[in-house]
Design a protein around this nucleic acid. Structure first.
Lengths: 111, 111
DNA sequence: TTTATATTTCCACAATTATCGAAATATTGC
DNA sequence: GCAATATTTCGATAATTGTGGAAATATAAA
């Protein structure tokens, strides 16, 4: 992943409405939610939501699939995974502290 | 960390010049780099850089310390750590796949 | 105090982003 | 085809963000 792509990904979630949308879809799981359901749950007008869904999709953080009259949007966990890997590798170089505190990770002492 | 703060943090690195600055400072280590050095290395006019440094500092991703005539900016690894933790916890819920692929982490098989 | 250096603030302007109603475009069922 | 529903596109507008030269501020050295 290059800086350009990272900025696109980051920009797509660096906005309250879009971060809300993405978090909602992360919770919703692989099957996702129809656009209308997202709009209702978050209280966002359809046209505004559509604008944000486009940004998230364009960045690759969402997938969309048509099902009958509905369009289901779902979080692309792999894309988010790649973003997290980029940030961990490129924005924390040489700093052990700068890693998510996963249970499998044991901190080494530092001066 | 709430959504609001996360958006502030994300916005601060969701821009090419600022992501460049942050990555440079991550490489530079705890002692950081003087503003002028950053401007020279990245070829950014002083006033423009100052604008971006303010955004990063305001988000808490940089620390600044005066030393003689220079102001040294350094990456705040802890803040980035917290952001990564937020993203891992809140934007990947229920999805084991959505975690940085650290060497200490062993993937479980998935369907 | 004067000069030099480092950085920021100010300002004007350009560019991008966000909002949302209305109209347009599907898709489905009658 | 017509009506109903779901979503997107269009268009106008507001708000925010990014850029960089010039001036202001701060620190240091002569």
């Amino acid at each position: 992943m290059d800086n350009r792509l990272a900025v696109t990904l980051l920009s797509s979630i660096a906005q309250e409405a879009r971060l809300d949308v993405f978090r909602l879809l992360v919770q919703a799981g692989r099957q996702g939610l129809a656009a209308g359901a997202i709009a209702t749950k978050l209280g966002i007008p359809g046209s505004t939501l559509s604008f944000h869904l486009k940004a998230l999709s364009h960045a690759g953080l969402l997938t969309a699939r048509q099902e009958s009259r509905f369009i289901y949007y779902a979080a692309n966990y792999e894309a988010m995974n790649r973003l997290l890997a980029f940030l961990t590798e490129n924005c924390c170089t040489g700093e052990q502290a700068c890693r998510p505190d996963l249970d499998c990770y044991t901190k080494s002492e530092e001066g």
